[in-house]
Design a protein around this nucleic acid. Sequence first.
DNA 1: AATAGGATTTCCT
DNA 2: GGAAATCCTATTC
Length: 185
Amino acid sequence: MIQSDFYRRDSAKVARDLLGMKLVKNGMSGRIVETEAYYGEDDPASHAFNGRTERNELMFGEPGRIYVYLCYGMYYLLNVTTHESGEPGAVLIRSLEPLKGIDCMKENRNVAEERNLTTGPGKLCEALGITKEYNGQYVTEKDSKIGIKKGEICDCVGRSKRVGVSENHHRDLRFFCKDSDFLSR
DNA sequence: AATAGGATTTCCT
DNA sequence: GGAAATCCTATTC
């Protein structure tokens, strides 16, 4: 697994460098092809913008942990925490290319098309069975059910505004593998 | 292809 | 009360 120093860095750098890596969960895996960086008090679209709450607590803590939350009362969204403790930050995993356990993902999503399995932050959580239970899990631990490993490097990175947020940051904080057929939206 | 509405928790005004 | 880091379905062009 990738170690915590990797996540103890600026959110945008982590978001960029996660592209191409493998997210593994219970024998299933996918290549990360789309991410977004989130910050704290200088980022109005971030959950951490208004300070600590019960929900966003993990964003303020150690790097390399999972922050899952329920979006629109319906879908879980998967983040990994970044920055040193005390400095809020996270990276949202927005899209994957399915690698292993595709049958299991199809079952979880009740969808047949591979293209529609993990191409969105809500979809990929459903495909991999990621719920609130995983909140706080470390993605750095060797033998845990969920983690992030080194993968095939993405050398054609695109950048854009973040998706679905009304308050946009002055920087482009969405990162994606330009050549992937598995981007969201 | 583009647009509109609904499901429904958590947090803010 | 209303918006939000979404997705699905239905309707209209």
